[in-house]
Design a protein around this nucleic acid. Structure first.
Length: 373
RNA sequence: GGGUAGUUGGCCGAGUGGCUAAUGGCAUCAGACUGUAAAUCUGACACGCAUUGCGUUACGGUGGUUCGAAUCCAUCACUGCCCA
């Protein structure tokens, strides 16, 4: 508790350079965090994630509470020990499942009641419960339970939902009994006035940082970017800002441009499992017939294990043969790609040339995909 | 040699007179994926045009029955199984 959790080291326009620090880990920001919902980043060994360079990953309260259960994880020595990940873990609360499983929940001021997707049983996620679950996990950063609303929600509905989400956030703060960090989650749908209210309301709480939730849930990109910049400007400068669930390469760049420090996303690992690989020239679908006899690596500029050792032809073969090594190698690559992207972003901010980096990166990323070939 | 079952689109395999250019599955091709109910999902898959649609060729070969055949009959070829 003595050392500062977040230090803002510099700015380049709205882009920020900083450091997140706890007893377990240090992460330079802007940072991307891989997602390991079920206490595993799908397809990868903890060692592989460490080797890429990641210092913090995500996991999920809803899923781990249902299986194997927070008590079991606590009895096994906490989530870090259980999954053999020694660096940082941020746990999401189940707020996203309020959105993604909205046909399986009921909401009340008390909290969210889920009908388990595993066996149909009912489970109350109150702010107090969610904190006790995450304290049982021992995650480094906890999220309050919130309502992530669909983008088409009316202003009226979002306004009411927001009051409850704020109430829940403060109840979480009150319920907290450990030194684990707790963020507030700014909501407000696609309505800038509500985003402002949300950011300003939460700013009064003793949160370690602030998440921006409810974006990239189906709204148009220009809407997302616009809502984002009309949100971050009301979040306190000295606290980290975390854009939840965002992680396409272009969104990471655009998020940093709007003052975001932290990101997480399933996209790189999910895309990897379905054979879509990230490159500086856009997405490469490794199953495509045009890679059949290609001796090239997926990305010649990439330093990852996959690109250093395997051809496109081999990776394509693995995917067509449905071999598990395919998704693993692709996951290593996609996560490395995002790791390197964030590293390059940080360097460009440190050297005060982020705008130039942003322009060049996006230009190349959206350039004629033929250049991949 | 005798008997018997069969031959369907790249493969396997439904279909036994019109609703069938032909169910499924696989393979192939293309696409999607953003706080993970996703190693998942979607679309294409005879050929040629075209805006719905139209035309052509197709269920081993040939010939026939019928208004109409992948479906019925004859015959030839090939394959499996059984008996010699």
């Amino acid at each position: 508790m003595t050392e500062q959790f977040f230090t803002l080291k510099g700015k380049d326009g709205s882009a920020r350079l900083g450091v997140l620090k706890t007893e377990r880990f240090t992460a330079e920001t802007p940072v991307f965090m891989p997602v390991g919902t079920q206490a595993t980043v799908k397809g990868l060994l903890p060692k592989e994630i460490e080797n890429i360079g990641f210092n913090i990953i995500l996991s999920n309260t809803y899923h781990l509470y249902l299986r194997p259960g927070h008590e079991l994880i606590k009895a096994m020595g906490g989530l870090h020990k259980f999954m053999n990940w020694k660096r940082g873990i941020l746990t999401d609360s189940g707020g996203f499942q309020v959105f993604s499983m909205r046909d399986r929940i009921s909401l009340s001021d008390e909290g969210v009641t889920f009908r388990s997707h595993i066996d149909g049983s009912k489970h109350m996620f109150s702010p107090e419960n969610v904190i006790s679950f995450q304290e049982a996990f021992g995650s480094d950063i906890m999220m309050p339970i919130d309502e992530c609303v669909p983008p088409e929600s009316s202003h009226d509905y979002v306004e009411k939902s927001l009051k409850r989400t704020h109430d829940w956030a403060f109840r979480c703060l009150k319920a907290k009994t450990t030194s684990q960090h707790l963020f507030g989650i700014v909501q407000g749908g696609v309505y800038p006035d509500l985003r402002k209210v949300s950011a300003e309301t939460l700013a009064e709480g003793a949160f370690s940082g602030f998440s921006v939730g409810g974006l990239s849930v189906g709204e148009e990109k220009p809407v997302m970017y616009s809502v984002l910049e009309q949100t971050t400007q009301y979040i306190p400068e000295n606290k980290p800002r975390y854009l939840m669930g965002v992680g396409s390469p272009e969104d990471l760049v655009e998020g940093v441009a709007r003052g975001i420090d932290m990101f997480d996303c399933v996209l790189p690992t999910r895309m990897a499992r379905t054979g879509a690989m990230l490159t500086p020239y856009g997405k490469l679908i490794i199953r495509n017939a045009k890679h059949k006899t290609s001796d090239l690596p997926v990305d010649e500029t990439c330093n990852c294990y996959t690109c250093k050792n395997f051809s496109r032809a081999y990776l394509r073969h693995l995917f067509l043969a449905d071999e598990m090594l395919g998704p693993e190698l692709a996951s290593i690559h996609n996560l490395t790609f995002l790791y390197n992207l964030m590293k390059n972003i940080r360097e460009s901010i440190a050297e005060n040339r982020f705008e130039q980096f942003r322009k060049e990166f996006l230009e190349k990323y959206f350039s004629d995909a033929e250049r991949i070939d």
